[in-house]
Amino acid sequence: MQDYIERLRKAVIDYDMEGMTKLAEDALAAGLDPLKAIEEGLALGIRVVGDKFGAGELFLPELVMAAEAMRAGVAVFEPRIPKGGKGRVAPKVLLATVQDDIHEIGKNLVGTMLTASGFQVIDIGVNQPCETILKKAKEIDAVVVGVSALMTTSMPRMKELIESAEGRGARDVHQFIVGGAPVTEQYAKDIKSDGTAGDASGAVKLVHGLVGDQK
C-alpha cells in the first residue's frame, strides 16, 4: 500500500496528468484506502510542488499541471470515500465569478494555488448568481467563499452577495473574500467582506489567515 501512496505522490510531482486515472484505479483495486490516497499521496505531492513554486524554483504551468494531475486522482478517489465516515480534513474553499461576468483567469489561478497549499477547492465557474453561490456554500459547508469580478459593472454583485448572506444568516457561517482587478482594499472593506488580495499568492496568505482566525 505504501508503494501506491509513494507512486501517487510522485505522479503529482512529475505532472503525470495522463497516467493518473489508471494509477488511481489500480491503487483502489489493490485495496488502498481512498481517503489515505488523497491525504497522504496526492495532497503531499501537491505540497511539494507548491513549496517549490513558493521558492521560485518552479513556475505557474508546472503548478497547474501538478494540480491537474491531482484533480484526476481526486476524481477517482473522492466518490469512493465511505459516506458518513471521516472525510477529508482540508478546509473547503468555494470559488465563483459573479453573475454578469465571465472572466476567470485570476480566479482559476487562486484555485490552483489554494489547492497547492492544501485546501479543497470547489470552483463552480463563471456568471454565478448569489443564490447559487450561497446554496452551494451551505451544501458543501465551505469555510471560505471567494468571488471575483473583472469589471466595474459586475462588481456590485459582490456587495449583493454579502448582503444576501446577511439576510439569510449565512454571513457568520462562511468567510467571504473578493478579488479581481478593480477591487481595492477600501472596496473590500466598504462592502464588509473579509478581505481581498492583489494577486494569487496574496490570496493564499489571506485564506490561511482567515482559516487560522476561525480556529
Binding site: L60, E62, E68, I105, N108
Partner: peptide
C-alpha cells in the same frame, strides 16, 4: 480553455518569457 496546464507551455516557457 486554459493553456496553463499544457506541456507545450512548460516546454517553451523558459525561452519565450523573460524571467
Amino acid at each position: 480553455g486554459t493553456f496553463l496546464g499544457q506541456r507545450h507551455t512548460m516546454r517553451h516557457l523558459r525561452e519565450e518569457h523573460f524571467m
